[in-house]
């Protein structure tokens, strides 16, 4: 009984969220009044059928999932060494410094950051000026206004989420296990591969699931840094609502994307559970 009372606020929040989604998805049963921004009956499954028949969104879905998976992998490849360094450095100063830098990126707003990337990545930006002055390139290298620039900004956005998740996972791998491995004749590199990395894999999977979810829902960076060329599902839905004013179809696309994203995250969660069962550190010091 007490437990039920404690759960009540969470239930209310969930109910409101579910209700909001529900009303949005129900909108998908209506249709747009042509030339207007209004919706009207009668109820039909036309929009859902149009979606299932591939109503223009399929390439956008594929692009979005491909891009999000790629960004997640890049984030993991860059983020893991960073997390490892933060978790295992002897220097308290360096650990605090790197954590502070990561947390600071949380604090800067997305719009501010997008403008920052424009200054850095533009053809006349800091990066190109640096490369030109260093003589490494002869022509400015176009990064902004294409997928590359959006990808850089998104990886930078995802990194703190991934790193902060994985730092905990690595710190939970007892030092004594690494010492035991060294003690038994295994050098530092092989100790990492055989002990530290496998035991931190559940945290890596968790960090990747988080990154994937965030990458899938990217909206602002593609819009501001993509030069109109990078269009992810969120941008597609935005266009359906704010350009075509086809709110019913936007609702259906949202519902479909939610299902696909949940499926992807369930796969990640399953992977994590599998890894946890295999590489659990729990119960031992």
């Amino acid at each position: 009984m007490k437990r039920n009372l404690v759960a009540l606020p969470a239930m209310v929040v969930l109910a409101v969220l579910a209700g909001a989604y529900g009303s949005f998805f129900a909108t998908g049963l209506l249709r747009q009044v042509p030339g207007t921004a209004s919706v009207a009956g009668p109820l039909s499954l036309d929009n859902y059928l149009r979606f299932l028949a591939g109503g223009g969104q399929v390439p956008v879905f594929l692009d979005t999932f491909g891009f999000a998976v790629l960004l997640t992998l890049i984030t993991a490849l860059i983020g893991y060494p960073l997390a490892y360094f933060i978790a295992r450095t002897e220097s308290r100063f360096l650990r605090v410094f790197f954590l502070a830098v990561l947390v600071a990126t949380f604090l800067s707003g997305s719009v501010t950051r997008a403008y920052g990337w424009m200054v850095i990545l533009g053809n006349r930006g800091l990066l190109n000026s640096l490369l030109l002055n260093a003589g490494l390139i002869e022509q400015p290298f176009r990064i902004l206004y294409r997928q590359l620039g959006v990808g850089i900004a998104l990886v930078h956005f995802l990194l703190p989420f991934f790193v902060l998740t994985v730092v905990g996972g690595i710190r939970n791998v007892p030092r004594a296990l690494e010492e035991a491995s060294r003690d038994l004749g295994c050098g530092p590199a092989r100790t990492f591969m055989r002990v530290t990395l496998p035991l931190s894999l559940p945290a890596v999977a968790e960090g990747m699931a988080l990154s994937l979810a965030l990458a899938l829902s990217a909206f602002l960076f593609p819009l501001m840094l993509g030069g109109g060329r990078v269009r992810l599902v969120a941008n597609y839905i935005y266009d359906q609502i704010f350009v075509a004013f086809d709110i019913p179809f936007a609702a259906v696309v949202s519902a479909g994307f939610l299902v696909c994203s949940c499926a992807a995250l369930l796969v990640m969660a399953g992977l994590q559970r599998l890894l946890l069962r295999r590489f659990a550190t729990g119960g031992l010091t």
Binding site: Y115, M118, L223, G227, G228
Partner: peptide, 9 residues
């Protein structure tokens, strides 16, 4: 270079 949707940017 860019197909823009924000005239501020």
């Amino acid at each position: 270079v860019t197909w823009y949707s924000s005239d501020t940017t």
